[in-house]
């Protein structure tokens, strides 16, 4: 039985490819120095849908996600091989400077990390950086719209100019989302965005993700099966640096093909 699983690990089950792909990943390998963390991964991230990445701890979900906006460039020992293309252009070619790429592919991190500035300054930072607002009124508009989209505006409208680190954890995380959407990225990557939040704050974030899907393409890493089932359209199961199975979320959770996937989602593994 075990040998059977080991043999089947090298290929991805399900449908890794979609017709309307925003990001396509082909034959991706990632190394930390000599240690390989991702093995020959193929996956499409569909436009205007939420792709959930699940799998046991240390299987490479964060590593995978961070390659999509070249955040791994900041780790000197990290090396990426293979093709990753955004709208058909290889991001390692066309975006020699990852700055523009990161403006198009935003990221929300596991731990809320607002700048220790005011709420307003946090959201305004990105637009200012890229010169998206011509004057103060436009900037104000962007800030308010982003905060509204992130479902935070009503809670902070009276304290826009007080320091952001004074917000609650859930508010901080939504502020980080507002900050990310303030520069209107095409893709938003989220690495366990709700892992440090209580169920109510989590529910708010999940609703938000569902709402954002209309305008953005989203890839989300999560440890919560329920969350993946609730917010995503497609789900990929990672195991030891490989994608074992990928497909429609409903299909993955109701009728997994691969034994490892089934073990994981039924809680017998990981």
């Amino acid at each position: 039985m075990t040998t059977n699983i080991e043999q089947q690990i090298n290929e991805t089950w399900g449908q890794p490819f979609v017709e309307d792909a925003k990001i396509s990943i082909r034959n991706m390998d990632v190394f930390y120095a000599d240690k390989q963390a991702i093995f020959d991964v193929n996956l499409d991230i569909g436009k205007h849908e939420v792709t959930a990445l699940i799998g046991p701890s240390g299987c490479g979900k964060s590593t995978f996600l961070r390659c999509l906006n070249r955040m791994n460039d900041t780790i000197p020992i990290c090396r990426v091989a293979g093709d990753i293309s955004l709208d058909g252009e290889n991001i390692y070619d066309t975006h020699k400077d990852p700055v523009l790429l990161r403006a198009r592919v935003g990221m929300v991190f596991q731990k809320p990390n607002p700048f220790p500035k005011s709420v307003y300054e946090n959201v305004a930072y990105g637009p200012r950086l890229h010169g998206l607002a011509l004057n103060r009124a436009e900037l104000d508009d962007i800030v308010v719209t982003s905060l509204k989209k992130a479902g935070l505006y009503n809670e902070v409208k009276n304290r826009l100019h007080s320091v952001a680190t004074g917000l609650s954890g859930g508010q901080q995380q939504r502020l980080c989302i507002a900050r990310t959407i303030a520069i209107s990225p095409e893709v938003i990557l989220m690495d366990e965005p709700a892992s440090s939040l209580d169920p109510i704050a989590t529910a708010i974030i999940e609703e938000l993700i569902d709402e954002l899907r209309k305008n953005y393409t989203i890839a989300i890493v999560t440890h919560s099966m329920q969350q993946a089932a609730r917010v995503s359209q497609r789900t990929a199961y990672f195991h030891l640096g490989r994608i074992i199975e990928v497909g429609e979320t409903t299909q993955i959770f109701t009728n997994p093909q691969h034994e490892l996937t089934e073990n994981y989602i039924t809680g017998r593994f990981g």
Partner: peptide
Amino acid sequence: VSPSMREAALGLGASKIQVAFHHVVPL
């Protein structure tokens, strides 16, 4: 200075120099 500050700024498309002078040095 917490690496998460650098990541936050980089994630928004700040260049290395901008990260250094907007966030790291002031902090």
